[in-house]
């Protein structure tokens, strides 16, 4: 029984690491600020969730699990608020998003005066 829980936990940790790595690659690869924000969203929701669930299965009783659950819930409440505040500040300060109709090459950010 223990070995099954351990394997499920390892699977969750592996998936979470893969999702976080994908988000890290995305933040380098995507062409402008707003698209990079979506990459960060991946690591904040499912990446963090998978890793924390994997850790919960390592020690599935007592206060430790409740604390991990609290970290997960706090992450899920905090990350959209921070993302929205960031996007709104950028939008209000005239950082225009790249549109796919414009012919922009990767790596340049478009900023309309």
């Amino acid at each position: 029984m223990d070995i099954i829980v351990d394997m499920i936990s390892a699977l969750f940790l592996l998936l979470g690491s893969f999702l976080c790595l994908s988000g890290g690659v995305g933040i380098l690869r995507f062409p402008d600020f707003y698209t990079r924000m979506h990459a960060v969203g991946v690591t904040d929701t499912l990446g963090a969730g998978m890793i924390l669930i994997g850790l919960m299965l390592q020690n599935p009783e007592g206060l430790v699990m409740l604390k991990l659950l609290m970290i997960l819930i706090m992450t899920l409440f905090i990350s959209p608020v921070a993302s929205h505040a960031l996007a709104k500040a950028a939008f209000r300060n005239d950082l225009a998003p790249m549109s796919d109709r414009e012919e922009t090459e990767g790596g340049t950010e478009s900023s309309i005066p």
Partner: peptide, 8 residues
């Protein structure tokens, strides 16, 4: 915002 791929 919480759903990746869309940001309000």
């Amino acid at each position: 915002t919480l759903t990746p791929g869309t940001v309000a």
